[in-house]
Design a protein around this nucleic acid. Structure first.
Lengths: 128, 128
DNA sequence: ACCACTGGTTCCCAATGGATACTACGATGG
DNA sequence: CCATCGTAGTATCCATTGGGAACCAGTGGT
């Protein structure tokens, strides 16, 4: 498997391993997009909201809070005239961006190879 | 962005782009684990169920069906004495494994860097 | 007849996701 | 003085999904 410095073996396939929890955090549409959106500098809530087309404020807040709790992003409040809040990557978050960027990139580069039927209708699999 | 052969630009940040839908499929805990579990050869339902520690049969079925519909895995039924079903990667699925393997790998390699508090309790963020 | 094995399905409930509306705060402006 | 705007979210409601446990079908074994 992949032994780590603490001496234990960590395994994403083990449901009781912390790795599983972290995979659950990162292997998530909105997390992957939010971290990617911060790759080229800090962004404010509103900017993220427009960049992550289709996200609702509730879900965006939840995603950002979760990423913050896990040390992937920082949340900085500027109590200026119109209050604004900036989100930025921590070093850990920046590192996490690498595999996520590769995944996003892979999807874009290989999108043509997927069955067309299922691409056109997001809910093609839901039969009445 | 990343223009593709069809002439359109594809963008995972655009909610109406098929890419978004595919990212949603791949940026998912169970998908990432299931594809990884098939990397070194076909596996049967029961084998996947044990490998993906903690998955319920319902969710595993749904995950596998979705991956099959999207052309990432094949489902082969052997109507032999004790019926068995084998799941295997398609070429597309095999290619998709690369970025997913990097992500799983990154998590395992960097797990020690995450805040310990949040690692120990998967639901630390859930207040009364 | 009964149990075990394999590969699921069904049922039910809790958690999550998503859309829409609303709040808090100070600034601006009539 | 009250109304309105921009910013960053909450609140509320409902649909979808995730998850656990039980159950089912087909066959072989005892």
């Amino acid at each position: 498997m992949a032994p780590t410095s603490c001496g234990r073996t960590h395994d994403v396939y083990d449901s009781s391993c912390p790795c599983r929890h972290m995979l659950d955090l990162l292997a998530n549409k909105w997390s992957a997009l939010a971290l990617g959106a911060l790759e080229d500098g800090p962004r404010r809530f509103g900017a993220l909201r427009s960049k992550l087309d289709g996200v609702s404020p509730k879900v965006l807040t939840a995603t950002l809070r979760r990423l913050e709790e896990h040390g992937l992003i920082d949340r900085t409040v500027y109590p200026a005239v119109p209050l604004h809040v900036e989100y930025s990557l921590t070093p850990l978050g920046r590192d996490a961006c690498e595999p996520l960027a590769l995944l996003r990139r892979w999807v874009v580069d290989n999108i043509e190879r997927f069955p067309q039927a299922v691409l056109s209708d997001p809910r093609a699999s839901v039969a009445p």
